[in-house]
Amino acid sequence: MSTNLKYLSLGILVFQTTSLVLTMRYSRTLKEEGPRYLSSTAVVIAELLKIMACIFLVYKDSKCSLRALNRILHDEILNKPMETLKLAIPSGIYMLQNNLLYVTLSNLDAATYQVTYQLKILTTALFSVSMISKKLGVYQWLSLVILMTGVAFVQWPSDSQELDSKELSAGSQFVGLMAVLTACFSSGFAGVYFEKILKETKQSVWIRNIQLDFFGSIFGLMGVYIYDGELVSKNGFFQGYNRLTWIVVILQAFGGLVIAAVIKYADNILKGFATSLSIILSTLISYFWLQDFVPTSVFFLGAILVITATFLYGYDPKPTGNPTKA
């Protein structure tokens, strides 16, 4: 049974990671009549859907009692304002990251994004060392060096790549690169900050996610008003929305929750497989279906190094000799 759950987890992880990136890329480059949907509004809708999903999970954990649900939300959120306010910082950063994801995939092909975004392993590791005093082993430090080398190869310019990017890309390669690098730093910091808060308190992860997404929706609405307020007043909040847009929003909303639910069945090696398969699938689909990416030998070398680094970072060597119980 556990083996079946592991492979099911692998399939879900690969599907979620690959489908979100590819559908978002396709939705941002698809040429249609009328206004394109606003990424700022899509992020807000995703946050609201996550709040609804987390409330449902708390309701389920409270034995499907509305009275118990109301008491938990009141006691854990309204009666603990300082604990709730702690989530304002990571929620703002996550909101920035989610918007940067749309910017990145409007300017970079899915394959290049998938490989480059693995730099979040590096930023998460560095923030873990500095913020929660996590110790990294020799294999992990080595993997970070390999990771940086691989990403450098992926971003290494070539004459054919420059010509292809002019013909195939829907935006600016530089803007996409800056967006994904900023997203890597924001992902690393916010992830470690959130982990630190979870370790310091006894509140459930679902309650913490409700608090996180509550502030995220507020920050998101502020962003809609500041950057796209004129367009919203002119064409409406849901301008340009179609079936594909809703698929992207739903994948973004529930993807993190699905991963959190299955991650306990997926060890580090399995997560490495999921990342590797997702990169390979993104490359193949970008080339054959989206036709917005032409891989080079340097890209393949960089992708192999990134995949190797992903496996190596999660490698946990077994101690030699007779292990003693702590």
Rank of each mutant, 00 (worst) to 15 (best):
A190N: 08
A179N: 09
A88N: 09
W289N: 01
F214L: 13
E76A: 11
Y315K: 13
G171F: 10
R243P: 00
Y94T: 03
D267P: 09
S62H: 11
S19D: 00
V298E: 06
D213V: 02
P81G: 05
S158E: 14
Y102N: 05
I210H: 06
K86R: 13
W141H: 14
L13S: 12
S19M: 13
R25S: 03
G223R: 03
W156H: 14
L13K: 00
F127D: 05
R71F: 08
L5E: 05
K63N: 15
S278E: 07
K80G: 00
S128N: 10
Y94A: 03
K135M: 12
V298G: 00
K271L: 15
V151I: 13
T308S: 15
V192R: 08
Y37T: 01
K120F: 12
M131Q: 10
A42T: 01
L270M: 14
I218P: 02
F215Y: 15
S62T: 13
T308D: 05
R28N: 09
M178A: 15
P323Y: 10
L87F: 14
D164L: 07
I77Q: 07
W156A: 13
L119M: 15
S172H: 04
F311A: 07
L38A: 05
F127W: 11
S158H: 09
Q155K: 08
V258S: 14
W141S: 10
L22F: 10
S158N: 14
G236Q: 07
D267A: 08
I77Y: 04
I210P: 04
G216P: 06
L78G: 00
V294N: 13
F237Y: 12
H74C: 10
M178W: 10
V248I: 02
T104Q: 01
I210R: 04
T123S: 14
Y287P: 00
Y225H: 06
V248A: 05
M222K: 01
L163E: 15
L168S: 01
I269C: 07
K31Q: 15
S143C: 10
D228I: 00
T29Q: 11
P157L: 10
Y117K: 05
V205S: 15
L168G: 00
P90A: 12
S158P: 05
S204L: 12
